[in-house]
Every structure is written in structure tokens, then in C-alpha cells.
């Protein structure tokens, strides 16, 4: 039976690296999704994932289990992303529809069959480009709330924990961000 997060945290606090490795494997993709959504750059996202877990391990003694581990990890990742954007104001991003590692197309959303139709592929790529631009046009706070809700599926309560803002603020940010995206993606959806 798989150990609970809290059990793994306690073992990690005692210096058990294998337990921490299990936590890393459990949450690395989720953190990557948030980081990539925030920074729109794969290499930066990969760095943020590493920094997040390194910081989490260093501060593991402070985690008391009063919130879910993943909301705590998200909070660390979000703060690192904001710091990264501030630090690197000359931030250059590579559009995500083009793979900067070799030009191969990005994988399709999970569960979707491969698209043989060139028209479908072009349309998919176009939606991705527009989506990328639309998300990038949001402020980090609005971007985070959209990513945590739409991609990670966090509840309003959990998002308020991650971003350290009241639930009402989460709701208003989400409403605003969605309207922005709908305006920018009109015709693509």
C-alpha cells in the first residue's frame, strides 16, 4: 500500500531520501505544469521544479501538516516563479508550440488520438499559440489562479492557501482572468 504524504514527510524529516524521492515522483509533474504555465519556458520550468523540491526539503521541519503537502509545494513553486520573473525582467520565452530542443511537435493532450489530418494539426498548433499568448498576457497573479484551477483542479479554498489570499480574491481573480482569456481566444474556442 502506498504511504500517505504525511508518512513520507515524517520519514523525509528524519533524513530518509527514498521517502522524499517518492514525494518528488508524486508531485514533480504537477509542479512542472504550474511552473511551465507561469514561465512559458521548459528549461526554466525544469529549474523551478528542482528549486521547489530543494527548498521544500530544506524547510521540511516547518511543514506541520496543517495543509495538504501539494498546496505547500505549489506555494513554494509559485513564489519561486514570481521571484524568477522579477529577477529576470528581460525574460525571453520560447513559444511553446515549437519545441526548442529540436523542433518536434509537442505531445497531444492525454487521451487524444494522434492527428493525421494536417488541417487538424495546424488548427491544434494555432490554438496552442493563441493560448500561450493569452496566458502570457495575464498578470502572474491571474495566471496562477487560472493554472491552479483549470489545469491542477484545485478548489478555491486550496488556491487561497497557495496564494495566501482570501477566497473572495481567488474568485474575483478567476472571474477576471477567464473573461480576459475568453476575449483573447474568441473564435479559437
Amino acid at each position: 500500500m502506498a504511504s500517505s504524504d504525511w508518512e513520507l514527510v515524517q520519514r523525509s524529516q528524519a533524513g530518509d531520501h527514498e521517502a522524499f524521492r517518492e514525494l518528488v515522483e508524486r508531485y514533480q509533474r504537477k509542479i512542472a505544469a504550474l511552473a511551465l504555465g507561469m514561465l512559458r519556458n521548459r528549461e526554466d520550468a525544469s529549474d523551478i521544479v528542482q528549486e521547489t523540491f530543494a527548498k521544500a526539503y530544506t524547510n521540511l521541519d516547518r511543514f506541520k501538516g496543517d495543509s495538504a503537502l501539494y498546496t505547500w509545494l505549489y506555494r513554494i513553486a509559485f513564489n519561486l516563479c514570481v521571484d524568477h520573473q522579477r529577477r529576470d525582467s528581460r525574460h525571453t520565452t520560447v513559444p511553446l508550440e515549437v519545441d526548442e530542443r529540436g523542433g518536434s511537435p509537442l505531445p497531444l493532450p492525454e487521451g487524444e488520438p494522434p492527428r493525421d489530418d494536417p488541417f487538424e494539426r495546424t488548427r491544434d498548433s494555432e490554438i496552442r499559440r493563441q493560448l500561450d499568448e493569452a496566458i502570457r498576457s495575464l498578470t502572474p497573479e491571474h495566471r496562477a489562479v487560472i493554472l491552479l484551477r483549470e489545469i491542477e483542479g484545485l478548489s478555491y479554498e486550496e488556491i487561497s492557501h497557495v496564494l495566501q489570499v482570501p477566497k473572495g480574491t481567488v474568485m474575483s481573480r478567476l472571474h477576471y482572468a477567464r473573461r480576459q482569456l475568453q476575449t483573447l481566444l474568441r473564435g479559437a474556442l
Binding site: 512542472a32 505544469a33 511551465l36 504555465g37 519545441d99 509537442l106 505531445p107 483549470e150 489545469i151
Partner: peptide, 9 residues
């Protein structure tokens, strides 16, 4: 799209 992008990291 978000989940697919994350898998590419």
C-alpha cells in the same frame, strides 16, 4: 493543453 505541455518538461 496545459497537461500536455507539462509532460514535455
Amino acid at each position: 493543453h496545459g497537461r500536455a505541455d507539462a509532460d514535455s518538461v
